[in-house]
């Protein structure tokens, strides 16, 4: 009986654990400032190691912007992303150039969102996690805490 309750508790807590993706404790300040100004400093687990490496090697053409880093920040951020990257098998291909929003995981998690919501001026882009996930900056991505009421579950 006790184990059953434990199992139930685990079942309830598991999905919410998956919705928690705070930045790792060893996240360098350079990652937050350099990769968190134009967009959210994304949880490194959302992209595989090889995709982060591809992203970092083409920062001079980063989705239409020149996001070149100084060599020290480049090295520090590169090492951080390498050790904190996500599981390539679970994420699936991120395309070329790699996009978090093209990974199978992201697509599966957002498959119920109608196209018009992505085009909403409050959202603007799939890069804008915080438009819907208002706790995203603190790593909270629960589908129960969505800023746009029509989309809340």
């Amino acid at each position: 009986m006790k184990s059953l309750a434990l199992l139930a508790l685990l079942a309830v807590s598991l999905p919410s654990l998956a919705d928690r993706m705070p930045l790792p404790a060893d996240t360098p300040a350079s990652y937050k400032s350099e990769c968190g100004s134009c967009h959210l400093a994304y949880p490194p687990a959302l992209l595989a190691k090889k995709d982060w490496a591809r992203t970092l090697s083409s920062l001079d053409r980063h989705f239409g912007s020149d996001a070149t880093l100084d060599p020290k920040a480049q090295q520090e951020i590169g090492r951080f992303l390498e050790r904190s990257a996500g599981d390539a098998n679970k994420l699936g291909s991120a395309g070329e150039p790699p996009r978090i929003s093209q990974t199978a995981r992201f697509i599966r998690k957002h498959d119920e969102i109608p196209a018009r919501y992505w085009r909403d001026p409050r959202v603007k882009s799939a890069a804008n996690c915080e438009a819907c996930h208002r706790g995203a900056a603190d790593g909270r991505y629960s589908e129960h805490d969505i800023a746009i009421p029509e989309l809340r579950r």
Binding site: C38, H39, L40, F63, G64, S65, R122, V123, K124, S125, A127, N128, E130, A131
Partner: peptide, 9 residues
């Protein structure tokens, strides 16, 4: 403001 591409505040 709002970033013209990403939408970030």
């Amino acid at each position: 403001g709002q970033h013209a591409i990403t939408g970030k505040t």
